[in-house]
Simulated scan of single mutants.
Amino acid sequence: MIRTLTTTAAATALLALASPATAQDPAPPAGSWSFVVGAATDNRSKGASKSDGDPFVWGAAEWESASGLVYAGPSFETIKSSGSELEVALSAGVRPYVAGFDFDLNVKHKWQVDADPAADDDAWEFTADMKRSIGPASGRLRVQYSPDSTGATEAWTWVEAQASWDFTDKLYASAAIGRREQDNSLNYTGYNIGVAWALTRNLEADLRWHGTNADIPGEQYADTLVAGLSLAF
């Protein structure tokens, strides 16, 4: 009888010791990766062309935390600037949701590959987005800043307002207007208006008119219609 009680007590003790390990919750997911590649008839950024009006390709990989709050990843795009035809970047940010608004706070460091030896071929760029959606309508305010841009341009700021409307779950239209103030370069206003259509679950087409008020010869600030495709996976 004593032996039986001793054995039972030992077994109970072992189960008590083992239960925390076996009852542990599974480890939370470590996040996930997503990828996107695309091409368009012109590389437009802040209203101006980064490819001198020529077609370009681009791609990005993004890691996102399980909560969706934190993200980071590399990207690339083809350009024509300071003798370089390829720009690569690393970025990281957070996407909090506060008082009904979606925020996206991002920092990016970019490099121009094989730029001219004397060129300023890298830059830091900081972006803050605030977005609000009500039914099919949404609005976004964007503020961007760089303390020292690539090339001859030094510090600059870009402030942009965007509005969009979802016609269906596959078709939406958007328009944006922004102002760029630059040290040692041109100040101008840029705008775009266009539509995007989800051709499949992963493939999206975009057709957009871009323009600026910069009266400068050449393709960089010229008004143009840009068509693009992007594939996410």
Rank of each mutant, 00 (worst) to 15 (best):
R3D: 15
R3S: 14
L5T: 14
T6E: 15
T7F: 13
T8Q: 15
A9V: 14
A11N: 15
A11W: 15
T12R: 15
L14K: 15
A21F: 14
D25P: 06
P26Q: 12
S32Q: 13
F35A: 09
F35N: 07
R44T: 10
S45Q: 11
K46A: 13
G47V: 01
G47Y: 00
A48M: 13
K50D: 14
W58D: 06
W58Q: 07
E64S: 14
A66W: 07
S75R: 05
I79C: 00
S82P: 01
S84M: 03
E85K: 12
E85Y: 10
L90V: 12
Y97W: 12
A99W: 09
D102R: 08
D102C: 06
V107L: 08
H109V: 08
Q112W: 07
A118S: 12
A119G: 02
D120I: 06
A123Q: 09
W124D: 15
F126P: 03
A128H: 02
R132W: 09
I134Y: 13
P136C: 04
A137T: 14
A137V: 15
A137P: 07
R140Q: 11
V143R: 00
V143C: 03
V143I: 12
Q144I: 11
T153E: 08
A155V: 04
Q162W: 01
S164I: 03
W165G: 01
D169E: 14
A173V: 13
A176I: 07
Q182H: 03
Q182K: 03
N184E: 09
N184F: 02
Y191G: 04
N192I: 01
N192V: 04
V195M: 09
W197K: 02
L199Y: 13
T200K: 07
T200M: 08
R201S: 14
R201F: 11
N202K: 14
A205W: 09
A205S: 11
L207C: 06
H210M: 05
G211A: 06
A214E: 03
D215A: 10
D215Q: 12
D215S: 12
I216V: 14
G218W: 06
Y221S: 02
D223M: 06
T224W: 02
A227E: 02
L229Y: 03
A232S: 13
